[in-house]
């Protein structure tokens, strides 16, 4: 009786360990996302046109270096966009265009960018390889 219970505990513990272990495992890293240089250049122009730097320090943009929002230095290595959604190019493109729709309550307002421009902005931000 007790032995059987022990065994079932052990099995449960093993299962739990396995589950935890699997959950802890990252997806095997995919090929690195390398944005197109032309997209990134257009993205930079869009960033300057709408004035993202009024709130964010952005590598490659000399002025301004606003501090109302977080610095975007090393942004491509951050796990979650605004601590809310996975940092993928698709999510980022949606976020820079209409942040409150992606993260309700976001401080960052919707920005006057088209969908293509938003994708270009994401390309620029991911192209900042400062490692």
């Amino acid at each position: 009786m007790t032995g059987g219970r022990h065994r079932s505990y052990r099995a449960a513990a093993a299962l739990l360990c396995l589950a935890l272990g699997l959950a802890g495992c990252k997806q095997p890293p995919g090929p690195r996302y390398i944005p197109d240089a032309e997209d990134a250049a257009r993205g930079r122009a869009a960033i300057e046109r709408v004035g993202c730097a009024a709130c964010h320090e952005i590598p490659g943009i000399d002025w301004p270096e606003g501090r109302t929002g977080p610095s975007l230095v090393g942004f491509d290595d951050i796990g979650l966009i605004a601590g809310a959604v996975p940092n993928t190019p698709e999510n980022l493109a949606r976020f820079v265009r209409n942040a409150p729709a992606v993260k309700p309550g976001s401080t960052m307002p919707a920005m006057p960018l088209t969908q293509e421009e938003a994708r270009d902005v994401a390309a620029y931000l991911y192209g900042l390889d400062d490692e």
Binding site: R49, V50, G51, A54, P109, A110, M111, P112
Partner: peptide, 10 residues
């Protein structure tokens, strides 16, 4: 600065 909600807040 350009004039939009974001730059205004910033």
């Amino acid at each position: 600065l350009p004039n939009n909600r974001g730059t205004l807040m910033g």
